[in-house]
Simulated assay, not measured.
Amino acid sequence: MTTAPSPVREPAWSLPRAAIGLWTTEGAISAVFLWLGIGAFLLFVPASAGGPVPVLRWVLPTLGLAQLIVSVGISPWVKHRIHRWEITAEAAYTRTGWLTQTWTLVPISRIQTVDVTRGVLQQMFGLATVAVLTASSQGTVRIWHLEHGMAQRVADDLARRAEMVRDQAT
């Protein structure tokens, strides 16, 4: 017999500080591409083109600067304060999001697969993501940007515990 997971509360663990570096790098990369687009517009569209072009020649760099400030200087720090995770005896759960926060809880008894993935930037920062999957498309929990060793230990522990619950059910 399985017990119901405890009510959703703030998960206990924050992400490692290396996640801030990863998010800052992602923000800088997106800013580079945005600025390349703004530069191409400023270079190839003459100010004398009329219409909204003169206004756009002022607005686009301003928006580009705002995007750079938010994505590199603010967002990584806010995300680090908000993104949290925890594995309890009954469930795996996370809180993610910045403007829209999402709490996701997966009971241990519902776990079917546990995956560890590492994107290119995650590898550069020594991080990995643990995906805890269930039969439901809505039931997946992703614990983003854990230190690689910690991610592997969490995945191994969850897989072992889920197997024990399955063995007890049969």
Rank of each mutant, 00 (worst) to 15 (best):
E10T: 15
E10F: 11
P11A: 10
W13N: 13
S14I: 07
S14F: 08
S14L: 11
A19Y: 06
I20D: 00
G21D: 05
G21Q: 08
G21S: 09
G21T: 07
T25M: 13
E26V: 02
I29T: 06
S30D: 00
S30I: 01
A31V: 08
F33I: 06
F33P: 02
W35G: 04
L36G: 05
L36F: 07
I38H: 01
I38R: 00
G39E: 01
A40E: 05
F41S: 02
L43V: 03
L43S: 05
F44M: 05
P46Y: 10
A49S: 15
A49C: 07
G50K: 10
P52M: 14
V53W: 13
P54M: 13
V55W: 09
V55H: 04
L56I: 03
R57L: 03
R57A: 04
W58H: 05
W58N: 04
W58G: 01
V59W: 04
T62S: 09
L63E: 06
G64I: 12
L65R: 01
L65Y: 05
A66H: 08
Q67S: 12
Q67E: 09
L68I: 06
I69C: 15
V70T: 08
V70P: 11
S71E: 09
S71L: 03
S71W: 08
V72S: 09
I74T: 06
S75T: 07
P76C: 06
W77G: 05
V78A: 11
K79C: 07
K79I: 08
H80Y: 13
H80D: 11
H80I: 09
H80N: 13
I82T: 01
I82E: 00
I82G: 01
H83S: 12
R84V: 09
W85Q: 00
W85D: 00
W85H: 02
W85L: 04
W85N: 02
E86F: 07
T88Q: 10
T88S: 12
A89K: 07
E90R: 03
E90G: 15
A91V: 00
A91N: 00
A91K: 00
T94C: 13
Q101W: 13
T102G: 09
W103F: 10
T104F: 03
T104P: 02
T104S: 10
L105M: 08
P107F: 02
I108M: 08
S109C: 13
S109V: 13
R110E: 11
I111E: 08
I111G: 12
Q112N: 14
T113N: 10
T113I: 05
D115Q: 13
V116N: 02
R118D: 14
G119H: 02
G119A: 12
G119M: 07
V120S: 15
L121R: 05
Q122S: 05
Q123T: 14
Q123Y: 11
M124I: 09
M124H: 14
F125N: 01
F125E: 05
F125M: 11
A128C: 14
A128F: 08
T129W: 01
V130A: 12
V130N: 03
V130P: 02
A131S: 13
A131D: 11
T134Q: 12
T134A: 15
A135K: 00
A135R: 03
S136W: 14
